[in-house]
């Protein structure tokens, strides 16, 4: 904790009710309460949000870019999951 290397927290902001929280950056803090205060000062000086989430960075498990293919590629050849895959007869106006 010395030298100012306090825990890192990732900050998520809900810009307005009805929308999800979105990642905006990170702050250092000694605890979650301070993280909220620091995030408030740093990320919402211009009414950027109505709600904050702070999450200790070390609690986040991220996928490995090396696993990108086996995680995301299988979706690529499944075009039938999209509505544009299907032919709709010309005489049908709305579907």
């Amino acid at each position: 904790m010395s030298k100012g290397n306090w825990d890192l927290f990732e900050i998520f902001i809900r810009s307005k009710n009805g929308l999800s929280h979105k990642h905006v950056g990170s702050v250092h803090a000694t605890d979650a309460e301070m993280a909220i205060e620091n995030a408030r000062d740093l990320y919402t000086r211009r009414m950027e949000g109505v709600s904050l989430w702070v999450v200790p960075s070390k609690s986040i498990v991220a996928s490995d870019p090396g696993d990108m293919e086996h995680l995301f590629e299988p979706a690529r050849d499944k075009v039938y999951r999209h509505p544009t895959f299907y032919k709709v007869p010309d005489n049908i106006e709305n579907m």
């Binding site: 010395s2 030298k3 100012g4 290397n5 890192l8 950056g25 990170s26 702050v27 250092h28 000062d41 740093l42 000086r45």
Partner: peptide, 28 residues
Amino acid sequence: AKVQDEAGHGLYLYSAAETLGVERGDLL
């Protein structure tokens, strides 16, 4: 407000630097 913004800019940037595996205390 302007000077406070500049502090914020510094903090956004230290955060960005930290994603490259360096510690803020060391940078300071």
